[in-house]
């Protein structure tokens, strides 16, 4: 009994996904058809990069709202560079991502500006930059080189899209870093107990800046895939994705206060989020326009349950203890 309980409480996200999938099948048989699943997974992979990137910063107890703009910027830069040099087309966007992440990290750690506001400002700034580059209209180039096109459109055996492969690979690498590398563990330590981290010689600024850089770089990969898929760079690409990614991470069981979360959770959280819209587009009981309500309601229920569990499991007592000195 206890084991079952632990399994459920540590894998709420997975249970959630299974429920969503069951609902999906009930609503529409074709939901589990290979074509639809391919579609579903492909669309998850676009957002998924932001989600798994966000995992890093959330683990550190930070947040990154600038991802939406980084997403757009990377797409533009890729297309722009593709006209000149195919290798730079892949490298420059990633570098740009690293710079954005670095700036975020510095604003938060060195200038002590709250993460929420700091990244909001970078979001505005970068969005402005993209719009300036694009002249506020959708940016197109005449001939898109094949490698750039392939990034978002290549499908192996008509079933496995390259973006999905990249997404899974990225998730595995992130999981490895978080689990097996010191820098990954540092993120858990910094997010779990900043002071303890300092005492144990874990550099908080270094960890924080690294997390933000990784987050932005992963986001940029997502942005590049997206742009490759649609073939143009829209100055408004990715608007609202930051919230979507945060929702996915929270659904995946991470705590925004830091120290708790797994990339597998964010992976599943992303799948849940995209399943919602997928299912909504396939059923005709409830109009698709209601999908946001369901997302909101599910989020609300998940966090309420989480809070109730924490409150009951001695959260209260701890609070009293810290007060008692």
């Amino acid at each position: 009994m206890n084991k079952v309980k632990t399994f459920f409480s540590s894998n709420i996200a997975l249970v959630g996904l299974i429920i969503v999938l069951i609902i999906g099948v009930c609503v529409q048989r074709t939901f589990i058809s290979p074509e639809n699943l391919t579609n579903l997974l492909r669309s998850s992979s676009l957002m998924g990069f932001i989600g798994i990137g966000m995992t890093f910063v959330v683990l550190c107890g930070s947040i990154d709202l600038s991802v939406a703009s980084a997403f757009a910027l990377s797409g533009y830069l890729m297309l722009y560079m593709a006209q000149y040099n195919i290798i730079l087309a892949f490298i420059i966007p990633l570098l740009a991502g690293a710079v954005i992440g670095f700036i975020n990290g510095v604003l938060i750690e060195k200038l002590s500006i709250p993460a929420f506001i700091a990244t909001l400002a970078t979001q505005m700034f970068v969005r402005g930059l993209v719009q300036m580059f694009c002249n506020e209209v959708t940016y197109k180039i005449d001939v898109i080189p094949v490698p750039v096109l392939a990034l978002g459109r290549l499908t192996f055996g008509n079933l496995i899209p390259l973006p999905l492969l990249l997404f899974v690979a990225a998730t595995l690498i992130v999981a490895f870093v978080l689990k097996r590398r010191f820098i990954g563990r540092s993120m858990y330590i910094v997010g779990g107990n900043r002071e303890a981290a300092n005492m144990m010689g874990v550099s908080v600024p270094k960890t924080m800046i690294t997390a933000h850089i990784l987050c932005s770089v992963l986001t940029c990969i997502g942005g590049m895939i997206y742009t490759s898929r649609v073939g143009v760079a829209s100055p408004l690409a990715g608007t609202g994705y930051e919230m979507y990614a945060i929702a996915a991470v929270v659904l995946g069981g991470a705590k925004l206060t830091g120290g708790v979360g797994k990339v597998s959770g964010s992976f599943i959280g992303t799948l849940i989020m995209s399943s919602f819209s997928n299912i909504f587009s396939m059923q005709n009981i409830l109009d698709a326009v209601w999908s946001d309500v369901v997302v909101g309601a599910v989020l609300l229920i998940v966090i309420m349950v989480q809070a109730a569990v924490t409150l009951r499991s001695g959260g209260k007592k701890n609070k009293a203890q810290t007060g008692a000195v």
């Binding site: 490895f176 010191f182 858990y188 330590i189 107990n193 303890a196 005492m199 144990m200 874990v202 120290g259």
Partner: peptide
């Protein structure tokens, strides 16, 4: 000065993890 959410074993080995070839 420990990390509440991490496993007991990790808390014991915090800062001097045992490594093998893959991490």
């Amino acid at each position: 000065n420990m990390i509440p959410y991490l496993t007991v074993s990790e808390n014991i080995f915090l800062g001097h993890y045992p490594y093998n070839s893959s991490g």
